[in-house]
Write a protein that binds this DNA or RNA. Structure first.
Lengths: 232, 232
DNA sequence: CACACCGTTGACATCGTGTCAACGCCCAAC
DNA sequence: GTTGGGCGTTGACACGATGTCAACGGTGTG
């Protein structure tokens, strides 16, 4: 009986994968909000009702694909880190990996974007949402580790908190790529700015602050914020 | 007859404003994708059909409110710039203004976020979409001017292209605030990072690169990208 | 062989959207 | 003052998408 249950588990998991695969296919040609349950069902060659057996609703399905997206992203980050020596180069490799991720898997990148632009309330998140958050955390850990490496090998200034800096870089890089991807064509023809150069130079720009020189008194060159604190 | 036509124009414009006002009210409690035409009509005390006389569809209405959002944002940017002297302080003021914008008018900020996350195809954009793009461009001009001021008064390094840097800062700042706003509570309890400190420190972090020192050879400290070019 | 279980499906009720014909009101002309 | 046309306004309709439910069929079990 265990083998039967096991087979049933496997078949169930296989069908789950089939649905997610179909959803990915549909998302390659259609936008997320113009995709319909019927589209997914047709692509998966299943009845529409069956989708509701394996997933709560379309949000749930999309979150399943989003989880795959975060996995792919984290793997790219790790791969980038392991190919470089100094911490600064490692964190730059993460940025380049993120750019490649957005270019080569635009569907995944869009899902990550959408996930990031939605509020994730503390602990009332759904199970599949938590999966995504966990994977995103692992990606952040990879970045924080690289930053710590940089602090240790002196390629990154030591007054930075690794995790806070990782979050900062993640936010900046994401915003930069998203802007270039969506408004890039418009910017290119209005201001003669190449999207590729924009993000590459942008990553270098961020790198300056990582290695850069707020050695002792940043308030001298930069106005402190309202609270009076200037840097972590 | 001109007075009659004029009155009709005014009434028409007034009704348009009424609809946009109602939409804003609804958006303060409901998310954009759970808002319905019936909600707007009820809030505006009009019949649902009438909405289609003044706007194409809900996207069109939302774009109208989005235009207001961009206007408010640009005004805040300009106001921030005029209150400071050096270019570096001006651009920092724009960042602070953006943070205040996101905090004090979260509905507007969400609309800007959504607009930025959608692809704006070159010249097949709708009229109201172009209005938003134009307003965003004006905001970018404000930033670029501030950066140019900084280059002129030596508070910002001179090897930066003002417009490209404006776009870069805009993307980074937006990504940073969006991340803090949506994932902030989660980050606070998992890593003891305050959202406010995250964005404030993040802005300072960006300021470092603006004033910072890639004076002659950035390729020495930073790995060049695939194309071999390092900085604008 | 009969029964029970589970995966699967078509059909239904509900809701949101966009359109259309019809109604009523205001102004102009006769 | 009465008639007619134009315009703002509305209820009703058709369509499409969603989520649920009862019913069907095949497989393993007693």
């Amino acid at each position: 009986m265990s083998s039967i249950e096991e087979r049933q588990r496997e078949e169930k998991e296989q069908r789950r994968r089939t649905i997610l695969d179909a959803t990915e296919s549909v998302l390659e040609t259609k936008d997320r909000d113009e995709m319909t349950m019927a589209d997914i069902a047709e692509e998966a060659r299943l009845s529409r009702s069956l989708l509701y057996v394996y997933f709560e609703d379309m949000d749930d399905i999309v979150l399943g694909v989003t989880h795959r997206a975060f996995q792919s992203m984290r793997r790219r980050f790790q791969s980038g880190v392991t190919q470089h020596d100094t911490g600064l180069r490692q964190i730059r490799a993460v940025g380049d990996a993120y750019v490649a991720f957005a270019q080569e898997e635009p569907t995944y990148f869009d899902l990550v974007s959408e996930f990031e632009s939605r509020a994730a309330d503390p602990e009332e998140a759904t199970a599949r949402m938590r999966q995504c958050l966990a994977e995103a955390d692992r990606a952040l850990e990879v970045m924080a580790d690289a930053i710590q490496n940089g602090i240790d090998d002196d390629s990154i200034r030591a007054d930075l908190d690794p995790m806070q800096t990782a979050v900062t870089l993640w936010g900046c890089t994401h915003g930069l790529i998203q802007l270039a991807a969506n408004k890039g064509t418009g910017l290119e023809q209005r201001y003669e700015l190449s999207s590729a150069a924009l993000v590459d130079d942008g990553l270098s720009f961020l790198g300056v602050s990582l290695a850069g020189p707020p050695l002792n008194d940043p308030t001298e060159t930069l106005p402190a914020d309202q609270n009076g604190n200037a840097q972590a």
